[in-house]
Structures are given as structure tokens and as C-alpha cells.
């Protein structure tokens, strides 16, 4: 009898529940990658996730471990409350879309990153509000048509898309900031490595992985064409890159680090 090598098996950290996502939606890929990492690191009983508001609001149905569901944009604040109270060996991650994280939740994500909260943030960027029916997001590309930018995103009216990795990379505290893509197998393999790195570095500080994703329904494209559209349109605007790793820091952040403090505190002694 021939022996078999497992090339791919459905991860144990996923429940049996069927995903409710549209056909071809890359949320499922992102979920699976996280579950694979949880399996590989053996942390199923040491991890608590935070689900957002958006299509992945029900993410807690699909992961076989504890979850807290956050209000729209507030996942980093909820995760902060968890990080500061749960035992130190726990892993905590938020899973947030672009509307949730980069629009209504901008304050929470920036300040959680700035405090160096020891969490992993998985940021799903598909340049659109999927759940509410395809409205303009803070990451919608210039000229891109959505249900609330029917003539294409007009940058004179509503500015340019926000690049979250680049923005957070101006801060001193984050330990890991990277952008990957779920648009083809080689990028997915790389994305998993980024996620794994983030989870492994989590107990050292704030870690952030942006994943370029699709919304075939919101974009009005087939799943296959969505992947092509992502690569042709999103990637030039959102370059795939590791922005921050331990030991690296851009000049803008370095200027204020490390350990720059006031020379003496204000109290007369």
C-alpha cells in the first residue's frame, strides 16, 4: 500500500460551517490562511479573534476558537481591552475591512498601532464597501465606479485612497507592517508567510498585514476577472511590500526613536 503525503487539508481551526461569502470572494482564502497558521502554531486554545462590521461580521462562525464581535471600526479598541486583561501568552487578532479600518475606525487603528498593542491586525482591502452593497471606500481607486461614486471616484471631491501600511509606517511602535495579495497562488503563499511572521512577532508589538482582496459582486466582475483587475489596478496603487520588520524603521519614524524623552520633567525639585 502506497503512503500518502498531505499536500493540503482543510485546517482544524476552521469550523464545519459553510462560508456565506459570494462565489470567488477572497475572504475565504484569508480565513483559511489564518486557520492554517493557528493549526501550525498550535494556538487554537490560546487565540481570541475580533470580528468587524462588514461582510466578515460573522467570521466567528467559521473559526473554531473564541471570538469577540466589535462595533464598526472599533476592533482595535476591543482588542486593546482584551490584550490588556488576558494572560500574556494569548494571541489576539482583529480582522477588518477597508471601510471598517480605514474610515470609521481610523482613530482606533492609528492609536492601537501607536501604543504598540501586542496584537495582529489583518486588514482586508478590496477598495469597496461589500456588505452594504458596493459603496465608495477610503481605499476606492481614483476614477473607480461604486454605487456612491457612480461617475468614478472624484479626487477633487473626496480625496485620494488612503494607503494604510504607509501611513502606519510613520509611527515608532509597530513591529511588523506588510502588504500582500490574494490574487494568485504565489501571492497567497507569500501572504501566508507574512501572516505567520506577524503572529510570531505579536508578543513583541503591533503587527499589521494588509491583504489586497477582491469583491467580485461589488466590482461587477467574474471571480477570475476580479483577480486580474486587482493586479492591474490595485497593485500599482498599493505596492506589495514589507514596510516594517524588527530592526527596520523608516527615517520619518527613526527621527523620534528610540527612547527620545524630555530632558527633564517639568516639576521643580
Amino acid at each position: 500500500m502506497a503512503e500518502e503525503q498531505v499536500i493540503f487539508k482543510r485546517p482544524a481551526a476552521l469550523t464545519e460551517k459553510y462560508f456565506h461569502y459570494c462565489p470567488g470572494c477572497t475572504h475565504g482564502i484569508a480565513h483559511r490562511l489564518i486557520a492554517e497558521i493557528v493549526d501550525e502554531m498550535g494556538i487554537q486554545e490560546k487565540i481570541v479573534g475580533v470580528s468587524p462590521v462588514g461582510c466578515s461580521v460573522l467570521a466567528y462562525n467559521y473559526f473554531d476558537f473564541d471570538f469577540q464581535e466589535a462595533a464598526h471600526g472599533r476592533a482595535p479598541a476591543v482588542a486593546t481591552g482584551m490584550r490588556r486583561t488576558l494572560p500574556e501568552d494569548r494571541y489576539i487578532f482583529t480582522y477588518q475591512g477597508d471601510g471598517d479600518l480605514a474610515s470609521i475606525g481610523m482613530a482606533e487603528i492609528v492609536h492601537a498601532a501607536n501604543r504598540g498593542e501586542k496584537i495582529t491586525v489583518v486588514f482586508i482591502n478590496n477598495a469597496i464597501y461589500g456588505m452594504t452593497g458596493g459603496q465608495m471606500a477610503p481605499t476606492t481607486l481614483p476614477g473607480m465606479r461604486t454605487t456612491t461614486s457612480p461617475y468614478g471616484r472624484d479626487t477633487t471631491l473626496c480625496g485620494h485612497p488612503i494607503r494604510m501600511c504607509e501611513l502606519l509606517n510613520t509611527l515608532v511602535e509597530p513591529r511588523f507592517i506588510a502588504r500582500g495579495s490574494l490574487s494568485q497562488a504565489k501571492h497567497i503563499i507569500k501572504a501566508k508567510k507574512l501572516l505567520r511572521q506577524a503572529f510570531e512577532l505579536q508578543h513583541e508589538g503591533f503587527t499589521f498585514v494588509e491583504l489586497l482582496s477582491t469583491c467580485p459582486t461589488g466590482w461587477g466582475l467574474t471571480p477570475e476577472n476580479s483577480l486580474l483587475w486587482l493586479e492591474r489596478n490595485m497593485m500599482p496603487f498599493f505596492p506589495l511590500q514589507v514596510f516594517r520588520e524588527p530592526g527596520t524603521m523608516p527615517e520619518t519614524a527613526k527621527k523620534y526613536a528610540p527612547d527620545l524623552k524630555v530632558k527633564d520633567d517639568k516639576k521643580e525639585s
Binding site: 500518502e4 503525503q5 498531505v6 475565504g28 482564502i29 497567497i188
Partner: peptide, 17 residues
Amino acid sequence: AIMCPEASIEVFKEIKV
């Protein structure tokens, strides 16, 4: 299996002993 958004494909490779 890597591409599948539903985690609905499992792949096993035969090992020639």
C-alpha cells in the same frame, strides 16, 4: 487548494516507498 476560497479541496500525494 491554495486558490479555493471555500477550503473545499484537499490534496494528497502518493509517496513511492
